[in-house]
Write a protein that binds this DNA or RNA. Structure first.
Lengths: 283, 283
DNA sequence: GAAAAGAGTTGCATATTGTCCAACGAATAG
DNA sequence: CTATTCGTTGGACAATATGCAACTCTTTTC
């Protein structure tokens, strides 16, 4: 089953190489892609919706929709007609412009009901871990700081004191750095204070350096600071309004010096970005 | 111009007379409707989306989608494939089921942004939250009950399981009480039934008490019933004919006993009233 | 434990259906 | 008034969706 599902999900990423201004020769469509047979008209229809998504409040002209979706005016008109018939798109009586309609809202509400950040982030992390053949964890903010809520074994046998429920240090874990990066001081200050009272002290300068770096790179790393012999790379999962919802971490042994290669990092990051998008983040 | 637009808009309401269980003979399609030439595949595609809209939250089987949309399995599969290719629909790797995907959320949010009430209410709420230095949310009625459509961080750092897309309980949230107060039983009854089946039971007497109170006061409150440690005050945003269009909620920590002082409550209420007036409410 | 039923997926021939071109009416500009 | 642009529509042709049947994999049944 997994094989079937995998092959089918992999056939996904055909990009629209036609940007906006040129009309599509039909040859291109039949030539380049689509190893699996599907309904072209539907995919074109979605292009039309995409064109309607970022348009002024008072609606888009047919002309613009046609351009953005790479269709002729007559073609675009017919697609819009079908969407109007079904209520997905509305045509304003006043100015004749087109805009997403009531049914689009209904679709969105139905889709929203399925949004479950933790589950989605967990799924994405799990598939990355399987691919990279290693182990990782998912965290969210808990009462005492970043808290491990999922621990996913993916091939790398690790024996650590970490488990579901563990609270990670803000100052000494890659996960913690992400919370420092994305959350307000009011939230993190008391936790830091308590960590320092317990003897874990990292200088403000050093923290600031790591925060800046995390913000620039889009991820954070540590080597052996939480569990000796274990290094980690953590990426943020963001929600609407750039709110930090969770973090995904991928672990490895510190011996494997160059475990976190560019392509691997990209894989991890894109998993987090995909999860973020799925829960409403507009990057 | 108006004549043209009118004729074209009038050609809209062709109903789907095929309910759900029968497969459509192609003859019927070409025979009965569609005086204006459009893209059949798109309208069929929307039928598939409609089938996905009212399905269990963990996705629908291909079989059920096919039935509900009146297509054969192979046909339904191809439509779903196209939607999966475009991100409108997602296929769960685990169980192979289909459900509305990330792009559907984007479409819905784009459509929502064009809805005047939502925009106005969101703006008003945002300015109140900034003034009160706290966090709040906007809800509208969705497929499974009151649904969070905006989450506005305004100073109070809160980490909860709540997010854009969360469905709030009717019986246990201040938002829910408002829907019970202003909406018909026909709308709310099935949701309440499902909540009670899931174990969330508040007695009818207690609900009635809260409803009466909400109607008198013009707002509703709860303390820690949705998210432990978090209390909320919600006010209704009404449209023409006293229809409940949305709700605005302001959050605070339960520790801050007297957060909701008279003047603060008045600020929140007047923001909601202003929004209501702006969208046609005649108070 | 093997067979049967059910689910999801795919190939292929056919004709239904979308595409392109051109044209029309209406509005706006020059 | 003429010229241009825009939304819309008709018709011939060819691309494309359809329906059937088969295949794989899973689940159920006996």
């Amino acid at each position: 089953m997994n094989a079937r599902k995998a092959s089918q999900l992999s056939a996904k990423g055909d990009e629209m190489e036609h940007q906006a201004t040129e009309r599509l020769p039909p040859k291109d469509l039949s030539a380049n892609d689509s190893p699996r047979k599907a309904i072209q008209s539907v995919e074109i229809g979605v292009r039309v919706l995409r064109a309607l998504m970022d348009c002024p409040r008072d609606g888009a002209h047919l002309r613009d929709v046609a351009e953005k979706s790479g269709l002729s005016r007559s073609q675009a008109h017919r697609y819009l007609l079908s969407f109007v018939n079904t209520g997905v798109v509305e045509q304003k009586v006043q100015n004749g412009r087109y805009a997403l309609g009531e049914f689009s809202v209904r679709i969105g509400m139905a889709a929203l009901a399925r949004v479950e950040p933790v589950r989605i982030a967990g799924d994405n992390l799990a598939s990355v871990l399987e691919e990279l053949q290693t182990t990782g964890l998912l965290s969210v903010w808990g009462n005492y700081g970043p808290t491990v809520i999922r621990w996913i074994d993916g091939g790398l046998p690790l024996f650590t004191s970490l488990h579901v429920g563990s609270v990670l240090p803000l100052q000494a874990s890659s996960t913690g750095i992400l919370y420092l990066t994305h959350c307000s001081r009011a939230l993190t200050r008391p936790v830091i204070a308590q960590e320092r009272a317990s003897g874990l002290v990292v200088s403000d300068d050093e923290l600031e350096r790591q925060i800046v770096q995390a913000r620039e790179m889009g991820y954070a790393t540590t080597q052996g600071t939480v569990v000796p012999g274990l290094s980690a790379l953590s990426v943020p999962v963001l929600g609407s309004g750039n709110r930090l919802v969770a973090t995904m971490s991928v672990l490895s042994r510190v011996q494997e010096k160059h475990f976190y290669s560019k392509p691997k990092i990209e894989k991890i990051r894109s998993a987090a970005i995909a999860a973020s998008r799925a829960i409403g983040w507009q990057g």
